[in-house]
């Protein structure tokens, strides 16, 4: 069983700083492995321990992205592939095509695992686009996966229903965080992981199609997040009415 797992080296939103003009400082911002991707890695490791085989972790980014690969390796992945190039920020199509090219270069995989969405943008588009680019089957939002006789039986967790589907392998599957509890790698395991092989592939080598029209980011602004600490005065009715007004302005009422 050859299992590929995709991990994103995502900007850590809890460490995000605000620069001039209320813009977030992305240059040199602290990054970490996208949190749900750990569920994908965990599931890959469980598949390996049930079926044997190899787990290869893929990521795109600068040298710093090695950190996220290392996290997957520390958890137990066998080796890593780093596509050296810029994160294609919000152009999900381009990201998917790049990963697909790298995965193809590494040979045939039985299962490619992703998470439901990344912690920074949560678009949830790369996994199905990846399947399209690889020309394989795709099942999204898995909370249980059973591999048997060249087929993947998957329980999908949707907003208000649960579906059981069957897909032929090779297959791309995105998992929800409910599927498992990702393991915590110990410091020693992290140190041991530095000895595991990581292959670097320059993005230019993959000749990725830039697409008909790239998605551009025109601007970003930080939402002021520190608490307002407004005490609403007045009797219960008045206070309630004022509160509703405020919440309406905040856009948090349905």
């Amino acid at each position: 069983m050859r299992i590929a797992v995709c991990v994103k080296h995502a900007i850590d939103e809890t460490e995000l700083k605000t620069g001039p003009g209320g813009r977030p400082v992305l240059e040199g911002a602290a990054c970490k492995v996208s949190v749900f991707d750990k569920n994908a890695v965990e599931e890959a490791l469980r598949m390996r321990s049930a079926q044997g085989g190899e787990v290869v972790a893929f990521t795109i980014g600068s040298e710093d992205a090695r950190k996220s690969l290392k996290e997957a390796l520390a958890m137990g992945a066998d080796r890593g592939v780093l596509v050296v190039g810029a994160q294609a920020s919000l152009d999900t199509g381009r990201t998917a095509r790049t990963i697909a090219a790298a995965v193809k270069k590494e040979g045939a995989f039985d299962v490619v695992l992703c998470s439901e969405g990344s912690s920074d943008t949560y678009s949830g588009q790369v996994p199905p686009m990846l399947a399209e680019a690889l020309g394989t089957a795709y099942v999204g939002y898995a909370r249980k996966i059973q591999l048997e006789g060249g087929k993947a039986k998957v329980e999908r967790l949707l907003e208000d229903s649960v579906e059981e589907v069957e897909a032929p392998m090779p297959v791309v599957v995105s998992v929800v965080s409910e599927i498992n509890e990702p393991r915590y790698p110990t410091l020693i395991q992290i140190m041991q992981a530095s000895k595991k092989p990581v292959q670097e592939i320059p993005e230019s080598q993959l000749a990725v199609d830039p697409g008909s029209s790239p998605v551009a980011v025109l601007g970003m602004s930080v939402q002021t997040s520190s608490r307002k600490r407004v005490i609403i005065e007045g009797g219960p009715e008045d206070a309630a009415a004022k509160l509703i007004q405020e919440l309406e302005k905040e856009g948090v009422l349905r």
Partner: peptide, 15 residues
């Protein structure tokens, strides 16, 4: 811990 047998609270605290 080495085998990753930690629930959310324990793993979260270590993280």
């Amino acid at each position: 811990v080495a085998r990753g047998k930690l629930d959310k609270e324990k793993a979260g605290m270590l993280e």
